[in-house]
Design a protein around this nucleic acid. Structure first.
Lengths: 260, 260
DNA sequence: CCCTAATTTTATACGGCGTAGAGAGTTTTG
DNA sequence: CAAAACTCTCTACGCCGTATAAAATTAGGG
């Protein structure tokens, strides 16, 4: 899988598309489709078969329509992907109201936000592959940013630090989710469990690897494999890493608090 | 760009390919190419034009050969991508010798390892898009794992914790590098600087966004934008996040040390 | 009411992709 | 020197995104 192209067309149209600016038709035949139905189908295809399963031709077929007719609704594939990405972020909950006293629960709130992102990526793994260069800036991704910022508002951090903290958590969640999804998909694609795979090809690997070159890797790899019952335990890795990240953020927040 | 497929073929062949197990030809004409030359060209194309710029047809053309002839060296495109990925990881330095006293410098060592990964991803952004489901397990990625594990060996962490710590750092570096690369490529693709982009489309965005819904995002976004002189400052974000991650890991290491 | 302008939808086509299959050419072995 | 083993080429299939032009459909203005 590869990060997919995105947003190559006219940004003006893209923005209008994402934010649902109504279009102005008067004269011609009434449209048989809607942007929503198109996005819905594209999302379903992506969920079922990954981004590779989303082609304009397939989407059109599902809607009983010529491929080219989609271009009346969407400037191109890149914009369609942007659209379904932002829609997917819309599955996240709305921002909690801004509470008065923020001090207490920042960690629980930030943790919840991170876990929601994690779950979303596992539910729609293709999200991880959609390149959001030019930060997408759809309504739902913006809402996610807003929600995450609120978890660290009024803690003594300045605005730039808030942005950095949120960026750190997002980067970590994205990276961890990617690892998890790849582990999952490997099993789905090869039809072998981790254990089967290692039984089948471990010996071959053993014959080819020089153990003197990778002593720690071999030791740790086996220990981890034994403990997980697999090569990885993505959920556990995520939780472990999240706690460390939050610990690190906690140090920063404490230092800012004591300074006041 | 999309996370690209990887490793769909026979794992046996893939492993042999990655680890350079010599093939056994006796009879036929001598090969006009080599796996190395093919990988070299593919890497160059990826560096120049991203993964999308790598096609077997283009690689073949560069080598003055029919596309199909490549199949004599490589089982398919997926394996070729696996191959150039592992080769790229080979640009990283060799593992430092395992020092006797490890206690002191774990933080500097881990920091260096993280920064090397970061630099590698910026040098070969397509690495971020190659899906390493079935953890690739080439010699150079294994060496990277070994090297990173050694930075946290003999600090009181058990083997599983060492694996988790290294995984955390890798996930974070990957996520942060992805963000950085996307920001960079956005500028390259649109031919507009961040500033130009915002000047051109900011007003449109302002007309379409409900400011009551995103108060904190708007405040923080502007503050961050003003400070960075752009929408993001990826290098600064990376350094900031890395320090927080290391702080968090430090807490864990301290707690384990005191327990002994 | 009908013609015309605006709009949607279709048909066809181009150039790209990965790779299957069959055959031609080349080298070594018995 | 023939045959086996191997490399390489040719052709072809079914995908892809989308450019272009023509056909079908609707609404407004005279």
């Amino acid at each position: 899988m590869a990060a997919q192209y995105s947003g190559s067309g006219d940004p003006r149209r893209t923005i209008e598309l994402l934010w649902g600016v109504p279009q102005r038709p008067r004269r011609g035949p009434k449209p048989r489709l809607s942007i929503d139905r198109i996005a819905e189908v594209a999302t379903r295809l992506a969920d079922e078969a990954g981004l590779a399963g989303v082609s304009l031709r397939r989407v059109a077929e599902e809607l009983d329509v010529t491929p080219m007719s989609l271009y009346g609704y969407v400037p191109g594939k890149a914009e369609l992907l942007d659209l379904i990405a932002d829609r997917a972020y819309g599955e996240l909950s709305e921002p909690a109201p801004r509470s008065g006293r923020a001090e207490a629960g920042w960690r629980a709130r930030l943790e919840t936000a991170a876990r929601e992102g994690w779950k979303l990526y596992l539910a729609h793994p293709w999200l991880l592959q959609i390149a959001t260069s030019r930060p997408l800036l759809g309504p739902n991704l913006t809402a996610k940013y807003e929600r995450e910022l609120r978890t660290v508002d009024r803690l003594g951090l300045n605005d730039v630090e808030m942005d950095l903290v949120v960026g750190l958590v997002d980067d970590y969640v994205h990276g961890a989710a990617r690892t998890a999804v790849e582990a999952t998909q490997a099993e789905a694609r090869t039809g072998m469990s981790d254990q089967q795979w290692w039984e089948a090809y471990g010996p071959l690997l053993g014959r080819v690897v020089d153990p003197d070159r990778y002593p720690v890797a071999i030791r740790v790899g086996s220990a981890a494999g034994a403990e997980y019952g697999a090569a990885h335990d993505p959920a556990r890795s995520f939780e472990f890493g999240l706690q460390r990240v939050l610990d690190g953020i906690g140090i920063l927040i404490d230092s800012r608090r004591h300074r006041r």
